[in-house]
């Protein structure tokens, strides 16, 4: 969210005068305690995981063929899913924030459904639509001979389905708090809606889009339920890291821990790289 606020702060226009900063409150011990507990709550499980990790075999396990295969598949599918979410989700967020779509409130709620849905149910829903006997899938199968389940494409679809709300909500929020008058100014200069969107709107909500994409990618990397239900689990084709980790729990818990660490390290590395590339404080992409 802080990234969204950055975007707002960078936009010009009148700043609310009445909302001057409140006098700084004295640091509350209770608040600090709760904040500390919150941090421990989030971090402690990872620390436990690290302490229990099979450090002796870790490197050997982590760079084994199946582990790298699953990691590479996860990176590819999560990137593709994030790209799909950007292409479809940013315009959707724009429509929610900038147009007078009828029943926008309802649409906004519907968009967030994949967030509250248990991912396995999402997978079942995708099967109901795109499966071999699904609403659309049966026609794809009959007319084109195309079957989506059990393919890498199915992994991308499952991940994008589950991750999309994170992007849409983030961009929608950034758009709604961004200054509309700049877009109006652009229109008086003869710029079409598409041109305004590309040259003014997108750059202004850039931080919000990046924040959304980061959330989206992280969610896609961790996706399990919808993927295993809709895409199945075949090494190199549909078995992403989370699936490999869960399966490893069945036979070799140490391998599962090693794979988890690899997934965590990779995800954090990608997210940090994204942030430093796109969220530098001064000077956006020109």
């Amino acid at each position: 969210m802080s990234m969204v606020e950055t975007g707002v702060a960078r936009s010009p226009g009148p700043r609310p005068v009445g909302t001057a900063r409140r006098p700084r409150e004295r640091t509350s011990v209770g608040l600090a305690l709760l904040a500390g507990t919150g941090l421990v709550f989030v971090v402690a499980p990872f620390v436990a995981l690290l302490l229990g990790a099979p450090w002796g075999r870790l490197l050997g396990l982590a760079v084994s063929g199946p582990a790298l295969e699953a990691l590479w598949l996860s990176l590819r599918t999560a990137t593709a899913a994030t790209a799909l979410c950007l292409v479809l989700g940013v315009p959707l967020a724009w429509a929610l924030a900038r147009t007078t779509l009828p029943c926008r409130g309802v649409v906004r709620s519907v968009v967030t459904v994949p967030m509250v849905l248990p991912p396995v149910v999402g997978g079942v829903a995708l099967l109901a639509l795109l499966g071999r006997r699904g609403l659309v899938g049966r026609h794809l199968d009959a007319w084109l001979g195309v079957s989506i389940p059990f393919t890498t494409g199915a992994v991308v679809i499952a991940e994008a389905f589950v991750a999309m709300p994170f992007l849409v909500l983030s961009v929608d929020g950034a758009l709604r708090s961004a200054d509309v008058s700049l877009e109006r100014a652009a229109a008086t200069l003869g710029a079409s809606r598409w041109y305004v969107f590309r040259r003014v709107t997108l750059p202004l909500v850039g931080p919000g889009v990046v924040a959304g994409a980061v959330l989206c990618f992280a969610r896609a990397m961790g996706e399990f339920g919808a993927t295993v239900t809709f895409a199945g689990s075949l090494p190199g084709v549909t078995r992403t890291m989370p699936l490999a980790i869960y399966l490893a729990m069945e036979s070799d818990p140490e391998l599962a821990v090693a794979l988890s660490l690899v997934l965590i390290v990779t995800s954090v590395a990608v997210l940090v790289a994204l942030r430093s590339r796109w969220l530098r404080p001064s000077g956006g992409p020109s």
């Binding site: 010009p12 009148p14 008058s181 700049l182 008086t188 956006g284 020109s286």
Partner: peptide, 13 residues
């Protein structure tokens, strides 16, 4: 050619 009171120069360009 409308020139706005708050000028509305694009801050990112």
């Amino acid at each position: 050619g409308l020139v706005f009171q708050q000028h509305l120069v694009f801050p990112h360009l």
